[in-house]
Design a protein around this nucleic acid. Sequence first.
DNA 1: ACAGTTTCCCGTAAATGC
DNA 2: TGCATTTACGGGAAACTG
Lengths: 422, 422
Amino acid sequence: EKQPCMPTHPQRPLIIKTGVQFTTKVRLLVKLPEVDYQLKVKTTFDKDLPPGRVSRQFFILTNNTKVMDIEDYSNGCLSVEFRHLLKEKKYINGTKGNEGLLSVTEELHSLSFEACFTVQGLTIDLETCSLPLVVISNVSQLPGGWASVMWYNLLTDEPRNLAFFGNPPRANWSQLSEVLSWQFSTFAGRGLNKEQLAMLVEKLLGQHASCGDYQVSWSKFAKENILGKPFSFWMWLDSILDLIKKHLLPIWNENYIMGFVSKEMERALLKDREPGTFLLRFSESHLGGITFTWVEHNDNGDVKFNSVEPYTKNRLSALPFADIIRDYKVISDGVVPENPLKFLYPDIPKDEAFGRLYNSQPSKVHPYIHTTLIPISQLRSNASTTSPAHQSPEPPMTPGEFDMLSESLCFDIDTMSSSYSE
Amino acid sequence: EKQPCMPTHPQRPLIIKTGVQFTTKVRLLVKLPEVDYQLKVKTTFDKDLPPGRVSRQFFILTNNTKVMDIEDYSNGCLSVEFRHLLKEKKYINGTKGNEGLLSVTEELHSLSFEACFTVQGLTIDLETCSLPLVVISNVSQLPGGWASVMWYNLLTDEPRNLAFFGNPPRANWSQLSEVLSWQFSTFAGRGLNKEQLAMLVEKLLGQHASCGDYQVSWSKFAKENILGKPFSFWMWLDSILDLIKKHLLPIWNENYIMGFVSKEMERALLKDREPGTFLLRFSESHLGGITFTWVEHNDNGDVKFNSVEPYTKNRLSALPFADIIRDYKVISDGVVPENPLKFLYPDIPKDEAFGRLYNSQPSKVHPYIHTTLIPISQLRSNASTTSPAHQSPEPPMTPGEFDMLSESLCFDIDTMSSSYSE
DNA sequence: ACAGTTTCCCGTAAATGC
DNA sequence: TGCATTTACGGGAAACTG
């Protein structure tokens, strides 16, 4: 009879952070005969939840009662909007309730709205309740909370199954992949294509999974860490979503980021391409990182692949990614710096793709010379592998220049030897 | 009889931020005969301040009463430590008190501590009061608040003259300069030398001031903006203090930052030096910026000075300053990048001075090539001034390379023409 | 010792007040 | 309208707590 909705965290509804205001709106969907008294709505958090069902208890700090008013809209519905603040109850006599079983982002809560009025001798109680809510105390818990909201909405139509995560069902990949693509189209502006989703399901379930509609467990999706990594699948994916939102929006939306490609696939795609062809791929080893890989040919004609250390949000806020692509240079044994990135896979000339996205960085500080940051890697060419590492070749730079560059770049055998080569 | 002290904001006592906890400690300096009851201390904010004297009123949100206890120390003194939180009283019936006359950081407040006890039939009231306090609501007000605390402590011995800023006295430069130098030695580790202080007094009072002990008004120090700038003298100085604390500590403490030098003095110092001699100077036009200026000789033998656009904390957190000095390069009309910084004034080879401070930036991300950011400026040499600006000279780089650099660096006639030349 | 969780609070941005 | 001041809250780090 009433319909509540609650925008809370921007773009991630149904997640409430303690100590941060959120709004709720309750609308009366039936038209009442004119009444001469006011209709009061009272909000209660976790109203008829038996204690012990949740491990944490919260209360609404702000005013929880408000009078309904006629909406400006034509239909003349009654509605009321609350601005609320949630706080955790401390010292619940002795021990907490449901300890240990669920993590805080799996613990579901609810907001109840009640009103009571008498009309023509009849007393009518109205009550409605929100969809399940997740309560967090720090934004660092937002990805986990959002995983829960997604899983819940994907897998049940029940309006209020607060015990959902006691035994969460599995999801079919066909459904889940749609939800994941949605995350990207809703929050970043472009969804995921078939190839990208294929890489994701392989990552989630292993290589055999790419054909057939496999099921994904809640644990695999958001709880267990990826093998050998200190984060779960969703944590990893959401860190990328965040990176796109904050630093890669236009590049992502132009579809210039292949992003989700296995290293094997990457090599297969690049190996027959023009030298200097590169593609952009998200880091699988670190949260929220993007790297580029380009293909080259050795002197003996072998194909060689290079990838830079992934750029994370810290680095990207120092220098936008398009500018990194424009300016990136490799110094190889004292040879003049060169940008190895020529064609975005399959064969788009770099500037044609990224030209419009370059940042001209105009400087307005007048008595000074403007400075740009340029990302440079030092790469020792294969040809000189036989010469001692500390030998200083005669460079086509001034010797001082070469020394300066040499000392400014850290040269690491392990780093170099790991350039893929086949 | 009791001695209160209050560490609040780290290293800036006597400034309290609303909504942020602060601690106070009260110590009983007389030894009492053994008493069998407890000695309660009550804290009051702005206890006997007639309303209207201050424009804002505050109250202590936390528990304001606590029992004194014997300190662990040998002397067996009674003491008590409070952990307090201050909040502003809202809606003080109608209008605020002392409106408009003083800014919030000039408004002085106080904390009072009271205790009452009876011993051998005598009732004794104890009361003590803090030094004047400044209450702020955002860290952005901290510099202003600290200016007030400094001025108060410099110019009065009164323990509690809350009307001090109604008519603040002037300070002798000899006293003030000592306090300013103190700020640097206390918070950064090295004070200011005679030359640096001379530049400061000239900035504060004009050129004539350098001889004699002039007086500085509170307004000149912290209230009025520097002529043509949107900030006061102290705001400017404190922004530099902050920059040093966060990004330049070792370089400052090694005395490698001349810092406070007028542009005239800078040129006078550099003009007879070896080309490539540079010095580090704080920006006078922008808050919290540092730049380097180096000397060169033109083809015709004229001395020429160049300064880079100042580095601010944002840029320095992307790349530490020592690394900037190590890696900085200038591209001049397609000539191979070169680092123009050779000798720290007067004649210390750059690497000798900064070598220990360079950041080796080891990369631990193995399958990847490490990348360094390198700050580069494009400088068009004087020799080509006669040729059209858009002409592309034949570079000793590959043409593609040159195009890439050309487009990556924004060339601005105004910027170039302002290199000092004499 | 430790991991999950909350608290703390700076610093930027937005809102508010005057 | 503009400036001074406060509020809001993300985000990193410290503190808490079983």
